[in-house]
């Protein structure tokens, strides 16, 4: 159970949040112009990294805002938290 620093509310227990999977997967602007393979890439392909991963989190039992988290999946260390639409502060 880790502690997440919600960019809107501050530090809260993990139990208040839900994880929305990999971040920075933008919904294609013109889906109808994509091939099956290109659409499948957006729809199904997700990374499952041991190490630094960029994730979407939602403060579901709090302010209900979505934001991004940079988490090391091997030890749950959170390296950065930033709002939707912002660029990752670290690579």
């Amino acid at each position: 159970m880790f502690i997440i620093n919600c960019p809107y509310c501050g530090e809260r227990d993990q139990s208040e949040f839900s994880c929305g999977g990999e971040a920075h997967i933008e919904r294609p602007k013109q889906p109808t112009e994509l091939s099956d393979d290109q659409w499948a890439e957006y729809l199904f392909m997700r990374k499952n990294i041991k190490g630094i991963q960029f994730e979407r989190w939602n403060h579901i039992h709090g302010c209900r805002k979505w934001f991004n988290v940079v988490r090391d999946t091997s030890n749950d260390k959170i390296h950065a938290v930033y709002k939707m639409g912002e660029r990752p502060p670290i690579k």
Binding site: E26, R27, R56, N58, R64, K65, W66, M84, G85
Partner: peptide
């Protein structure tokens, strides 16, 4: 509700 919020906040701000 959560799904709609998700689209509003992240895909169609």
């Amino acid at each position: 509700l959560s799904k709609l919020e998700d689209y509003l906040q992240t895909e169609w701000p």
